[in-house]
Each structure stands twice: as C-alpha cells, then as structure tokens.
Simulated scan of single mutants.
Amino acid sequence: MDAQARSMEETGAGRVAYLDNLRWFIVILVVVMHLNVTYGGNGLWYYKEQAGYGPLSGLMFGLYGSLTQAWFMGLICFISGYLVPPSLERKGTLPFIRGRLARLGVPMLAYVAVIHPLTIWIAGLADPAAPDMAGWYAHYVVSLDFLSSLGPLWFLMLLLILSVAYALWRAAFGGPARREHGRAEVRHWWVAAVAVVIAVSAFLLRGVVPAGQQFIKPLPGNFMQVGFFASYVVLFAVGILCRGHDVLDGIDHRFGMRWFRWTLIFGIPLWFLGIPASAIVAEAHGATPDIGAFFGGFRWQSAFYATWEAFFCVGVSLGLIVLFRDRFNGHGKLARLLSRTYFGVYVFHPPVIVAGAVLARGVEMPPLLKMYVMAAVLVPLCFAASLGLRQVPVIRRYFT
C-alpha cells in the first residue's frame, strides 16, 4: 500500500485513521498535563494539592509541562486546519458555519452551564472555605463570569473562530481546492520557515501578553492563555495549506524522523541550559534571576524561549505525523474505541480527575509518583465515563 493509500485510510465520514490516533494520544497527554498541574502546582487548574517536593521532582514536573506544552496543542490545531478544507468544500459556506456552531458551540454551552460549576463544586469539597454553590452560581450568571469560564474548552472557541474566519475568507476571496496544485515536496527550509514565523509571532505577542497569563481576568476555569496562541494560529493556517497541496502524503518518513530525532537531541538539553544561562547573565549584571523573563517582555530570555518552543513544536509535530502515518495508521478495536470517545474525554475530564484527586487527597505519596499513579487510574476512567455518556443520544451527537 503506497503512502497516499496508507495516510488516507478512511474511517467513516471523511475521517483519517492516523489523525484520529494522534488526537486521542494528545487528549491523553492533556489529561496527564492537568494532573501535572494538580500535583506539581505550576499552571492553571481547578484543584491543586498542596504538597512539598524536592528540586528533582520540581524539575520533572517542569520537564513534562514544558515539553508537552511546546507542541501538543499546536499539533492538534494543525490537524484541525488540515481537516477543514474538505469539510467546507463538501458542505458549502453557510452549512459549514452552522455545523461548526453546533459541533463546537453546544459543548461550550454545556461546559459553562453544567461542567464548570460541577467541577468548582467538587474542588470545593476539599476546601472548608468554599462558597455556597447556590449563591456562587447566581453571581456566576449575573456577573457574566460564565463567558470566560470555558476551562479547557477555550480550544473549541479558538477553533470556532479560526474555522469561521477561514470559511468567510474563502467565500469572499476564493482559494485553491484540495489537490488543485498537486502534491508538494516538503523542504527543510519550509519547515524552518514555519518555526521562524511561530517564534517571531510568539515573541511579539508575549511582549504584550506574557505566556501563562490569563486572558480578560483571573477566574477559576479561565484557562485562555493568549501568549501561547502564536503556534496555534500559524499551524492551523499551515494545516489548511498542507491539505491543499497534499503535503502530508508526500513527506518522506526519513525526512520527518530526522527532524524528530534532532529536535529531541538538541531541544531537551537546550531546555535545561536556558534557566542557568539566564541566572549567570543576571548575576553578571548584578540583577536577581527572574524565570518570568522567559515568558514575556522584549528580553533575550523571551526570544530564546519563543525560538526554542517554535522549533521544538515543529520538529516534534512533524516527526509524530510521519510516525503515526506510517506505523499507527489503523483502527483496531481499542483504537476505534479511543477514537470515538476522545472528544468526550476532552470535554468531561475536569470533574472526573478533580473528583479523583479530591478523593485521594489523604493518600500519602510523593507528588510526582502520585501524579503518575493517578494518571494510570483516571485516564481509563475518563474514557469509560465518555463511553458511558455516549449512550445518551444528544451526547453521542455533539460530544463524540
């Protein structure tokens, strides 16, 4: 079976097996990321377990957080952009927009109305000072706080905006249909150019909104961190371009894996070297080392982090695409089950893992070990919950 036939193995309704497999793999990493915040304390999440740990555990929490944050949401934006053009061409502009509004809007409404308040209530069970939920909910609605309480579903809001913008652009200006220009052969300088565009965009954006800073105002459930959006927007657009030129089908396996290997070989040591290098420079100038300098402002540390993150994102994403295309491009029973339930896991996992963390809060265990033990328990539980909820027709329609 040639590369095109392998990569375009359909799984119903225009789905592609290896892209489905990549998405459920990324959703698993998202759930583990939120457990990383739960037990490591770095990041935004509903419930954090207050426990001390040493510098080695802190390094490992930071390593997982930084290395996954650098690429996983950018890659899923790329996949989303890659799948938009054929859907738009098949449906037409207005039906496509209506479909996006339903497909992405209904889960967002359900989240702000039910799932976010439920998660707040569950997290409050571990806090004696938690507010009365009836009064909290009334204020939540009247104050319009629900408008910025999408939790992890900020990603659906971003996809909705980007998808509708692309549909309107195509309606106004037209554009090349898929495969109109034939298959393009990816070159090294193309990949590097995408990384440079992401790096420059991220550096400029973070001069205004630092990475990790909440957008609008600090609220429980407001996880929209605009400082990370450069890679998401750029890779969504690159995904659209790749679809139009059949790029994914033509990427040589060795080409993609070469980028993957060299990204890991150089990228991980560079991550370790960045902070001490900043500390040495700061001390040489009589200043106090500030890790926040990496996340925003027009400083060399921010430029370093934006560049590292961009190349790490592009290299890892390219490698995983060819790896899954050529090695994991099928739907066995387990993969088919995970592909049908990963979207539900993404939407419903917050109350599940917060409930698990609250129930296990009395279990004494090193925080890093506890994170992985809880992941082994709660990730399957999230998929089981998504599978069970899938039996409800309205959930099966909008959440799978």
Score class of each variant (00 low, 15 high):
210 P>Q: 09
176 P>G: 12
197 V>I: 13
181 H>M: 06
180 E>H: 12
195 A>E: 03
206 R>V: 02
168 L>N: 00
173 F>Q: 04
188 H>D: 11
200 V>M: 02
216 I>D: 06
218 P>D: 13
203 F>I: 05
173 F>C: 03
197 V>N: 00
169 W>I: 02
218 P>L: 04
192 A>Q: 04
208 V>M: 11
167 A>Q: 05
199 A>R: 00
204 L>V: 15
209 V>N: 10
190 W>G: 04
179 R>N: 14
211 A>M: 14
178 R>S: 08
209 V>P: 01
211 A>G: 14
174 G>T: 07
170 R>T: 02
197 V>T: 04
218 P>M: 06
194 V>M: 11
206 R>K: 10
193 A>C: 07
215 F>Y: 15
184 A>F: 13
213 Q>H: 08
196 V>A: 12
190 W>C: 04
168 L>D: 00
204 L>E: 02
176 P>T: 08
169 W>H: 13
202 A>H: 05
173 F>W: 15
188 H>V: 11
194 V>T: 15
183 R>K: 07
181 H>D: 09
180 E>Y: 10
189 W>D: 11
205 L>C: 06
212 G>C: 09
168 L>A: 04
177 A>I: 05
194 V>E: 10
207 G>R: 06
176 P>M: 08
210 P>I: 03
200 V>N: 01
197 V>F: 00
214 Q>A: 14
217 K>I: 11
211 A>C: 03
214 Q>R: 10
184 A>Y: 13
168 L>E: 00
214 Q>L: 01
182 G>I: 12
178 R>I: 15
173 F>T: 01
170 R>G: 00
195 A>K: 08
194 V>H: 05
177 A>P: 04
187 R>L: 09
207 G>A: 12
218 P>H: 04
201 S>N: 01
169 W>D: 07
191 V>H: 03
218 P>I: 03
180 E>N: 07
217 K>S: 12
210 P>R: 07
206 R>E: 08
203 F>W: 14
179 R>C: 12
179 R>E: 13
206 R>P: 02
193 A>Q: 09
204 L>P: 03
183 R>H: 10
204 L>W: 07
197 V>R: 00
193 A>P: 02
173 F>P: 00
193 A>F: 10
187 R>Q: 15
209 V>T: 10
188 H>Y: 07
194 V>F: 09
217 K>M: 12
168 L>Y: 00
176 P>C: 05
170 R>C: 01
169 W>S: 09
207 G>K: 10
195 A>C: 10
204 L>A: 15
204 L>N: 03
179 R>G: 14
201 S>M: 06
177 A>V: 13
190 W>A: 07
206 R>G: 11
172 A>R: 15
184 A>I: 11
210 P>L: 08
172 A>G: 15
206 R>N: 13
218 P>F: 02
184 A>C: 03
217 K>Y: 14
172 A>S: 13
177 A>N: 06
170 R>N: 03
200 V>H: 01
205 L>G: 14
214 Q>W: 01
203 F>M: 05
192 A>N: 05
215 F>E: 02
184 A>Q: 10
193 A>D: 04
183 R>C: 05
215 F>P: 04
202 A>W: 06
185 E>V: 14
215 F>G: 08
192 A>R: 08
200 V>C: 02
189 W>I: 10
169 W>V: 05
191 V>I: 14
185 E>F: 05
